[in-house]
Design a protein around this nucleic acid. Sequence first.
RNA 1: GCGAGAGUGGCGGAAUUGGCAGACGCACCAGACUUAGGAUCUGGCACCGUAAGGUAUAGGAGUUCAAGUCUCCUCUCUCGCACCA
Length: 823
Amino acid sequence: MEQKYIPGDVEQKWQAFWEDTKTFRVTEDTVKQKYYLLEMFPYPSGRIHMGHVRNYSIGDVVGRFKRMRGFNVMHPMGWDAFGMPAENAAIQNRSHPAQWTYENIDYMRGQLKKLGLSYDWDRELATCNVAYYRWEQKIFLEMFRRGLAYKKTSFVNWCPRCETVLANEQVEDGGCWRCDSEVKQKELDQWFFRITDYAEELLEWTHKLPGWPERVLTMQRNWIGKSFGCEIDFARDNGSGTIKVFTTRQDTLFGATFMSLAPEHPLAMDLTTPDRQHEVSAFIESVRKTDRIKRTAEDFEKEGVFTGSYCINPVTLVQMPIYLANFVLMDYGTGAVMAVPTHDQRDFEFAARYGLPLRVVIQPEGETIEPAMMTEAYTESGVMANSGQFDGMKSDDAKEAIADYLQSKGIGTKTINFRLRDWGISRQRYWGNPIPVIYCDACGVVPVPEKDLPVELPVDVLFTGEGGSPLARLESFINVPCPVCGKPARRESDTMDTFVQSSWYFLRYCCPDSHDAPLDRSKVDYWMSVDQYIGGIEHAVLHLLYARFFTKVLRDMGYVSCDEPFTNLLTQGMVIKDGAKMSKSKGNVVDPNALIEKYGADTARLFSLFAAPPEKDLDWSDKGVEGSFRFLNRVWKLVHDRLETVRNAGPVDISSLDGEERTLRRSVHKTIRKVTEDLDERFHFNTAIAAVMELLNTLQAFDATTPQSGPIVKEALDSLILMLSPFVPHISEELWQHLGHTDRLSDAVWPEYDRNAAVDEELLIVVQVNGKLRSKITVAAETPEETIKAAALADEKVQPFLIGVQIRKVICVPGKLVNIVAG
RNA sequence: GCGAGAGUGGCGGAAUUGGCAGACGCACCAGACUUAGGAUCUGGCACCGUAAGGUAUAGGAGUUCAAGUCUCCUCUCUCGCACCA
């Protein structure tokens, strides 16, 4: 009597088994080789989506495969649980963010368990739990002590109605994404992490991470943006001080005819002459109103205003008018630029608009440019001109020479500049980790003493949606005696950016129950670094850069030994349907629950692994899902059809196999080799699955009445199930049991292939004439090259192409092809 | 603009070191079983051609006995950065 494949029953049974026996719990084991496998933890938004299914299915295959290969696999899961949506939901539902978050976590944990993922749930953590964030506060204090956390004023996007800071991506067309009010640039006192201290090391290591995709490394390098240049001092023409600029093009110094300053430049008003006051103030105000996104768009009109002051070009002694310009950024370089309109496109446009002089100082090889003929700046390298003693030099060489000259004259210094800015972590929100600092009128900024940690988020908070941080309004939280002098003081009401939590969660997984320190070094050192990290490309810069930074900081504090957190990184592609990323607004969302309900988790996993290689986008196809389901049904049916054949089968007697049996066995061992290589070295899950499908096809066609069918088919089925188990663990466990195994598949060992069995006895040799396929011949494996050549030349399909031509050469690629060159 | 990646049947995708282009799956077509099938099984399936054969990996050149794969040029698309001085 044949059983039917009912995924729901099978999956429930094995999920309960794995959970009850804690199959995937791990501890440090010095005998086995460790393997730390990690997927990016999710934000508990409510329910999982197909992107999660894909991400975690990929991870699970790797985890189960490595486990079968004998590794001590740590595979944890947790929740990136602080963040704005919880707060918004709380305002909407008049509830508490914690309630919303924990309910979501419970629901999503259930969903993940329904996917049969091999997590060690004993290591689960949620970043909103005080047991987690308290340690982050301690780390913060240590960073504060080391000067790595500091406060400074900076401009931020500010919604006056919501009374909160907005991230750049939350500003839409200059308005607040929530209430549409005009977003202002507001100067606020904010906490920062000094990531720039690590810029050099972060950059350097991008060249020492061979396990990372090149494009992620490139993005990080661009983000860090190291550039070599000079800082040059330009004296005011009235002798009252100097203005410092940064340039990478000191070779164009002789062409600098005016100067541009950022409107926010501290000297802006000082430089402004009384008659220009009105105009300049108006300009500064209008720039300040424009949001940063608009202002930095390429097609934004270059505008400026003359301050009325001048400075002196230190090499030409030409008087240069000083402008404020909207395209000069205060937070890059020194906020002041020497303008060379002939060799910089922006300066060219600016000069054209305001009628400023041009002076060509670099001529292209074999050409002469006149300012009057120029329609755009010449930005390439060339030969120096109009540049005093540097004339005739190649501009690339002049860069170094002019830098040396400036340095020797004390006018400038060679400098290295980074685009990377310090990481602003202050958020005027409730649902985050409170920054453990107290402000005292007498003592200033006072860190919360460690004995007073944690600063817990108060529970009795009202979420009215009236704007501003709920913490700032909560007197019972804000008012606190100063830890130093005991006088009344105020608590910091800002919380930390949620990227802070995700910058070290992978370390905490190593020792989730460390109760007296953020990290337990011996455990962390056993598990770190993460051997394989898997997640979306959208985190290529921010999260991955912050996590690298934190690892280095914690290393310098003595918490960990490794320099880098993630040895290998896999960035998986998006899940696409009908040509677009799945989204509610597009209406092309596939709900994992419905999918599991209808086909089971195994099918959902199988399809998301089979349809595309992991790093590419996956095109969702409902028909394709059915194909995967069909395949599992065929596997189920085949196993049951062959149960009689396989019953009581002993070991294979290799010496007495007949031809067909040997052929089947060869397919089995070749498949094992292929699947092992695809999983181990390449993460080519789609081709590995394809190979197993082929084996199924072969097995189905095999006539199971030969003398040794029992042992041979049993070996084939066992191997097939073993190979499928990382992809579709539930049905595999079940069929493994049906095949009569008393051990659990989750404890089984990955099959080894038999080299001898995988070798072909006969080889198919392709015969080409002048590179064109003309025939195929079959020869025994050990046939000497000369015999193969002779057979190829004598082949009847080849013969007609050799008539009337002279054979010049015969190329023989052993085991593959013969190419007859004739003409 | 700069940087990275990609372009292969009707579709998703294979082709690991330069060596049979299109594995595997989807869709489609035909057949079998069936009262019936949107279940299952068998076979077919790049294009042109009755065939022999020819043509095909975005387009063009090149290297090679042999190119999807290597080199150069052009086009298209995707992603990232983008007034960074």
